[in-house]
Simulated scan of single mutants.
Amino acid sequence: MELLKSHDLEALKNENVRLLTENGELRKMVGLMQENLELRCTLRDHESTVRSLSPSGKEQKESKSMDKKDDANVPRCRDPKQLQRCQRIVGEISFQLDRRILSSIFLEQSRLYGYTVSNVQEKILQATSCPLTNKVDESQRGEMNRRFMDIMNQLKKYGYDPRVHPTFSEYLVNTYGIMKDRPLPGTSELASYSDPEVIRKMAAEAMPADVLKDVDVLLNCLINLAKEDGKPLLIW
């Protein structure tokens, strides 16, 4: 028994080290993406200033036309701290939508580390197969697949595409991260995060125009799932 406990403790320590390492690498990647985005915004501001000093005429008109196209893909929020805050709330939306979807499928699963909507079929196979005998619980597998299809059909009403949005959600979380500091209960900040229109405005300020439509799809899905389960929009 002591040997078993020692083995379990060592396994937990190794798992903790692995999770800390992965978390550190993810934060480094998010930091690099954030620096890259801020640099792009700075360069575009500089280029705009240079173009304003160029001669007028046909070249200037063409330049303005290109500026409008570029500006469509530049976040409207120029304050770095506010921009990061808005981007992280978009990552939080994506993360929490995935958690809600997965929780509706794996009802008995308390920890969902490593589970994503993209790999849900693989995880259903794992959850319904005995690792020692490979015996399959066909009844449980059928029920999980039914729950998965039910929620996918439900979300399709709001524009969710199972071929696109699971991967898109992962991209947003990996690129922008999620909220580091959770708002305190009873604060105006927490109240604002419960207001879909406030979050929609934050997304519009932080996201390039070419991805905003899909971000809006994720937010609409989360809003409707929150209405259905009676829980807050963002579960902290």
Rank of each mutant, 00 (worst) to 15 (best):
I105N: 08
I93H: 03
F95Y: 15
S94F: 05
G91P: 08
Q87R: 15
R111N: 11
Q109T: 12
L97H: 03
R78E: 09
I93M: 12
R99H: 13
T116E: 01
S104Y: 11
G114D: 01
G114M: 01
R99Y: 06
I89G: 09
R85S: 14
I101S: 04
L107V: 06
V90H: 03
L97S: 05
V117T: 13
E108Y: 01
L112R: 04
D98H: 01
S110T: 06
R111P: 00
Q109C: 11
Q87P: 08
V117H: 00
R100E: 11
P80L: 02
R99G: 07
Y115F: 14
E92I: 04
V90T: 12
G91V: 09
P80Y: 07
G91L: 08
Q96M: 12
Q87C: 12
L83R: 13
R85E: 14
L107H: 02
E92P: 08
L102E: 02
D98L: 00
F106P: 07
P80E: 09
S110M: 06
Y115V: 01
S118H: 06
L107P: 00
V90Q: 03
S110K: 13
N119T: 05
R85L: 14
L97P: 05
R100V: 10
P80Q: 06
G91S: 07
N119S: 09
R100K: 14
E108I: 00
R111L: 06
R99L: 14
I105Q: 03
Y113P: 00
S103Y: 00
I105H: 07
Q82G: 12
G91K: 07
S94K: 08
L97F: 02
S103V: 00
E92S: 15
P80D: 06
F95D: 14
R99I: 08
F106V: 03
I93D: 09
S103F: 06
R88G: 10
D98S: 15
S104H: 13
P80R: 06
Q82A: 15
C77V: 10
P80N: 05
S94M: 05
R78F: 07
L83I: 12
D79I: 10
G114F: 00
L112C: 05
S94D: 04
R111Q: 11
L102V: 03
L97Y: 04
S110V: 09
L102H: 05
F106I: 04
S103M: 10
D98E: 15
S104G: 15
Q82F: 12
R85G: 08
Q96D: 10
F106W: 02
K81C: 08
I101Y: 06
Q82Y: 09
E108N: 10
Q84G: 07
I101C: 13
Y113L: 13
R88M: 15
Q109E: 14
D98C: 12
C86P: 07
E92C: 12
R111A: 07
N119M: 05
Y115Q: 01
G91Q: 07
K81S: 14
Y115N: 04
S103I: 00
N119L: 02
D79T: 08
L83V: 13
L102N: 04
V90N: 03
R111W: 05
L107E: 10
L97A: 03
L112I: 03
F106L: 02
R111H: 09
G91W: 06
L97T: 04
C77T: 10
D79Y: 03
S118F: 03
D79Q: 10
L97I: 09
I105L: 05
